[in-house]
């Protein structure tokens, strides 16, 4: 049973990343009812932007700035870059399709995702890149939890950043003008438009926020797991998507809960069943949750409008 605490740490780390990705899916779906499959690749681009910043700020001679500032700069660049990308994708691949058959934006999203992957392969490298172990955070740093158990600083960073992001997002949605507008649009897009909400702008803001979160997730994955690759977005995107659905798509706390559930399910499946079946377990969780609670854990089932 002494694997239990370590498994929980593993699950929390992974779950935090999934939660950050799931939020973007969930927000976009809540407003546009669109399965934004390109979201996983926005996360991938975030990881690459972080890598670029890392290469510039940490040359082989040593870091140019204090490490926390470097990490902040990485976050900042990834957030800005991903926001621009997300807005561009929305503007050029989704907006023209807003009144089209529902499957058209789905296909558009999938192919935007492939185009992004292959652009990275073509222009950066087909080789996987690595942030490097110990480049930013010393290998042996961490909090001792007694015995052999240690929680690495990078993991603390991942979990901490996710919590901060979550609080900020909740504040944003609950208490700001844009947040209220987003809730209104999510509730009824036409009614909101009639009440004077600029729907297009709200959608743009949604994409900015969602993509920025994905960018943060990309950088965090680079910092804690080192390895980044141009195809990393697809599976992670599917997992994030699974998480948002399991939690109840369209619901912010649901996305977080779903992310943590999927992360935990994978961690526990790896340790107590076999790592071989962790992906299968994640998808099995999805199927079972939806069959039992068709609206997801914290979501409401869409009322069919006639």
């Amino acid at each position: 049973m002494d694997q239990l605490p370590q498994t929980i740490i593993n699950g929390l780390t992974l779950g935090s990343v999934y939660a950050l990705i799931a939020l973007g899916y969930s927000m976009v779906y809540g407003i546009l009812k669109l399965l934004n499959f390109a979201h996983g690749d926005v996360y991938m681009i975030g990881a690459y932007i972080g890598y670029a910043v890392l290469v510039v700020l940490v040359p082989s001679t040593g870091p140019l700035l204090p490490i926390p500032i470097i990490i902040l700069v990485m976050f900042l660049f990834a957030m800005v870059g991903c926001s621009i990308l997300g807005v561009a994708i929305e503007r050029f691949a989704y907006r023209p399709l807003r009144n089209a058959p529902r499957i058209a934006p789905l296909i558009s999203a999938l192919w935007v995702s492939f185009v992004l992957q292959n652009l990275i392969q073509l222009t950066i490298s087909p080789r996987p890149l690595s942030y490097g172990s110990g480049t930013l955070i010393p290998v042996n740093s961490g909090i001792n939890l007694g015995g052999d158990l240690r929680i690495h600083t990078a993991r603390v960073l991942v979990i901490g950043t996710t919590i901060v992001m979550m609080i900020a997002l909740t504040y944003f949605i609950r208490s700001t003008k844009w947040g209220r507008a987003m809730r209104a649009v999510a509730m009824d897009i036409d009614a909101a438009a009639m009440m004077g909400v600029d729907v297009n702008r709200v959608i743009v803001v949604t994409f900015i926020v969602g993509s920025a979160l994905a960018g943060v997730a990309g950088v965090l994955v680079g910092i804690v797991f080192f390895s980044i690759q141009h195809t990393m977005g697809f599976l992670a995107g599917l997992k994030g998507f699974t998480a948002s659905v399991v939690g109840g798509i369209g619901s912010i706390p649901g996305a977080v809960a779903g992310g943590l559930l999927i992360g935990m399910a994978e961690a526990f499946a790896s340790v107590y069943i076999s790592v071989t079946f962790k992906d299968a377990v994640a998808f099995l969780v999805l199927v079972i949750v939806l069959l039992i609670r068709p609206g997801g854990l914290l979501g409401r089932l869409l009322v069919q409008k006639v």
Binding site: Q6, L14, E266, A267, V271, V275, T276
Partner: peptide, 20 residues
Amino acid sequence: RASVTQQDTDFSSLVTTIVA
């Protein structure tokens, strides 16, 4: 014996099993 996929970026749970 265990198997991971080429898309995996996190092996910490695998490592937990290995260490156990």
